[in-house]
């Protein structure tokens, strides 16, 4: 695995949050609720996956998602397009594991207002 200099800030990109996306999550949860799931921000983890694939070149078989936090700043009104900014804050290495700490901010693409923050810790085993 490549170890980049941190913080590593990825190119921002936009995600559309709409009823179709909500329905996909509802189907996966086997839910009949049409309401916004609190973990819909999982869709923004693709920014972290992009860094893992293209910068770190990590072996996905050795990856483990160990913790996840969402902070809700403003209610998301569907449909809405959010700008996603992913940062690999740091990599700590101990006991043959790399701990990757990602932070993702989601802002209203029209107004720039912060809507949601996400923090993820992902482990990559080195052995």
């Amino acid at each position: 695995m490549n170890i980049p200099v941190c913080p590593l800030i990825a190119e921002p990109y936009e995600i559309r949050f709409d009823q179709e996306l909500v329905q996909k999550f509802a189907k996966a949860f086997r839910s009949d609720s049409p309401s916004l799931p609190p973990t819909i921000g999982a869709i923004a983890l693709q920014g972290a996956f992009h860094i893992i694939n293209n910068t770190l070149n990590a072996d996905w078989r050795k990856l483990l998602h160990v913790s996840q936090t969402f902070e809700y700043l403003k209610p998301i009104q569907l449909p809405m397009t959010l700008k996603t900014q992913t940062t690999l804050k740091e990599i700590k290495t101990r006991a043959q594991m790399h701990f990757l700490n990602f932070e993702i901010s989601l802002t209203d693409s029209k107004t720039g207002e912060p809507m949601m923050n996400s923090k993820s810790t992902i482990i990559v085993r080195t052995s």
Binding site: F29, S35, P38, A42, Q68
Partner: peptide, 27 residues
């Protein structure tokens, strides 16, 4: 892992706590 967290989100909704009632959710 996020499917597990999502199911806890479903439980929250069933208990009467929709996404709009949450400040943080840490798993």
């Amino acid at each position: 892992g996020m499917l597990s967290m999502g199911l806890l989100g479903e439980a929250l909704a069933k208990w009467g706590f929709p996404q709009t009632s949450l400040q943080t959710f840490e798993a």
